[in-house]
Amino acid sequence: MSDKAIQVTGLKKRYDSTSALSSVTFSVEKGEMFGLIGPDGAGKTTLIRILTSLLDPDEGTCRLLGISVHEDPKSIRKIIGYMPQRFSLYPDLTVGENLRFFADLFRVPRKERLKKTEELLEFSRLEPFVKRRAGALSGGMKQKLALSCALIHTPEILVLDEPTTGVDPVSRREFWSILKSLKKSGVSILITTPYMDEAERCDRIALIHHGEILAMGTARSVIDQFSGSIFSVSGPDLLGLSRWFKRQLRSDQVRILGDRVQLNLFSSTEKNVSDLVKDAKASGQVIDAFGRENPELEDTFITLIAEREKRNDQTISS
């Protein structure tokens, strides 16, 4: 059987009147690192909770390595390692005791446990802190401990919900290098993150917004789906420039980025940019430089969201 690591089909979930997931379908290959990218409230955590058997969907199915999450949650729990968004280990137990506790719950045999513990402590560099209480660790160390606990039973699929949110940049980088080596050892990884730079480290990503997948594929291919163009203008009065352009375009198309004002033009609304710049100059704005920029994932995402919302507005008004 060439089962996929994760196969999600037509997943739907509503909380009272709001829809958290509307027909989500995607799959993750074995050994792949798949990123779910989306802003807060996009439905990432709901999706993860369904995948880890903590929540039942209204409709749709999830299969992990061919096993239905809904029908056989017990087997699912043996093959996945889950690291929730919030640090959820015992703060009053030490690093070693937390690891030991989860190893015992998964009935990891003694010999394997000792080997695995040593291995995990080494690559997470938590060895010097084995006797420290988990509550007294720094944010980055806590996340590494949580990851180690999720890995103690050598899962085949690792599910991580925003593991690097609120973690300092150095620890973030370290965390990702750990994930990379895990991937090399053959673990399939599903990770959610609100950070676009992290998305580019994944094999494939899905952009999710309001419980809907807007785009999916490699980071490159998602960027290529971007149909608009990005321009930047700079001048002595960036604030004035951005105000002027915001009057001409939609406000979410104009951003100040350090030394320049970035204009994000959808294909549908594209005016001749040079005309726009001319108009600006005519109305007294000083523009020193003006040029095209390469779109990034973030631009694609913002554009996709804006387009989707415009479409929704139209359906409501029509």
Binding site: L54, R77, K78, R86, L105, R107
Partner: peptide, 13 residues
């Protein structure tokens, strides 16, 4: 409150 119950629920327990 501290979220460990959820962590326990994803172990085979």
């Amino acid at each position: 409150e501290i979220g460990t119950l959820e962590q326990l629920m994803v172990t085979p327990i």
